[in-house]
Nucleic acid binder design. Structure first.
Lengths: 243, 243
DNA sequence: TATCTGATCTTTACGATGTAAAGATTAGGA
DNA sequence: TCCTAATCTTTACATCGTAAAGATCAGATA
């Protein structure tokens, strides 16, 4: 906190004081709108604009910079405007996380298209998972690091559910068996939990820079992606069993 | 934010205004000190007291409640006192994380003592890992969820390093080979990354309640610990290879 | 078409937080 | 005994989330 950046609270704060002179002559323009639009009192699509603004702020300033007021500034509206559309910060973060999950699901879905061999198909999803997180670390943080998410919101609940279903489905395909909706064997649950834990844990550690230590000691120029690949394919034991 | 709890900023704010009357008659007692001690201007061991206060606040109010001012209140000193010992919030969090890593390392070290079979020994550490996180979710959050950690601080760097060394060592033992300090084969790195990612990812998902979905569909009364066990021991494929 | 109602957005206000700066107090060495 | 530096408190300020009340306007209703 305590930034030294004294940017004005909003971009349209110079209005006729309070005397309703109705002098609608020259109102300040809204943020990134074309110089033609007049910035009406009612935005029209503020909700979407705020979500996009939030995404920009997140990419520019990271998780710590993503505040209600910063988003409002970015969208060129008053700092209290977001409240009406999202209730509170939790609401905004939750809706933004839903956006993230949908992006993420789309990336997952189109990941294994080009894969030909079974091995390539098995590796496509994990790689896409990590790739998404690396390309959108802020968004991944919103989805998996924040504690302020409200999963009772339908949009977030649905998007996250779909994400999980996709994962379970992929595991089922790999195990060549049908994964039921309402019941799992221990081995099935273990397979899903293992895959998810592994790739999620790897991603978190990677984003937090905690794998630098390992990567630095690996053979010259080993990338994170290569390490992930080895993690998923290399034999568990160092030596063949029974030696 | 915006709590409705109007507790006084500090427990000792009623001092002689400014006239140095030196009327040291009755000064307010410090927080939880015995009714005998007189709460001197200099605490004597404020640093340690603040860290312990921080741990209490963390367990009581969670990560969101752990603020510099809350810690100062808990310790019964002025809100600016922590600054002198930790610089800023990042400093306090980092030192607290170091405490956590040391607790964690101790728990890891004493985990595999009672294990007799090789399998039990292999499972002891992961179980202790998850158990620590479940017993101290706030602390685990400080260590692995917060973005405000300064690893250039020697205490944190050391404690975290020791934690990693312990992990690498355990993996080496399991693989029956010596893990070098400065060089790793790809398979070694993969084994370490796999173990760490798996148990860390599992822990995060578990703490975030994201495994409830799986646990609920598992056979009646399957615990998280049982799922972890299966995750680490169950065969990867559903059917034996070649069918 | 004129009016009215509710949704949308702005203003204003308040308590809380992190941090900086200056003052008060005291321990411990010169 | 005095002085310096460390320790702790006060005071101040920018920023944040949130609540409440006022301003504006779109669209239905008459």
């Amino acid at each position: 906190m305590a930034k030294t950046d004294p940017k004005s609270e909003t971009a349209r704060s110079a209005r006729a004081p309070s005397k309703t002179t109705s002098s609608a002559a020259s109102r300040p323009r809204r943020g990134s709108a074309s110089a033609k639009t007049e910035s009406p009192y009612h935005h029209g699509a503020l909700r979407e604009a705020l979500l996009q603004a939030a995404e920009r702020v997140l990419e520019r300033d990271g998780l710590a910079g993503l505040t209600l007021r910063a988003v409002a500034r970015e969208a060129g509206v008053s700092h209290a405007a977001p409240t009406h559309h999202f209730g509170d910060l939790t609401g905004l973060l939750s809706e933004l996380a839903a956006v993230g999950f949908r992006q993420f699901n789309a990336a997952m879905a189109s990941s294994s298209d080009a894969a030909t061999t079974p091995l390539a198909r098995a590796l496509a999803r994990p790689k896409a998972y990590v790739a998404y997180a690396q390309a959108h670390p802020g968004m991944y943080g919103i989805m998996f690091r924040t504690e302020r998410l409200d999963y009772s919101r339908p949009s977030l609940h649905e998007a996250a559910e779909a994400s999980f279903a996709g994962l379970a489905n992929a595991i089922g395909m790999m195990r060549q068996e049908q994964i039921s909706e309402d019941a799992l064997t221990l081995n099935q649950g273990a397979a899903i939990a293992r895959a998810w834990s592994m790739v999620h844990g790897f991603t978190m550690l990677l984003l937090d820079g905690r794998l630098e230590d390992i990567l630095g000691r690996l053979p010259e120029g080993t990338t994170a992606e290569r390490l992930l690949e080895a993690m998923l394919t290399a034999p568990i034991a160092a030596k063949p069993p029974g030696t």
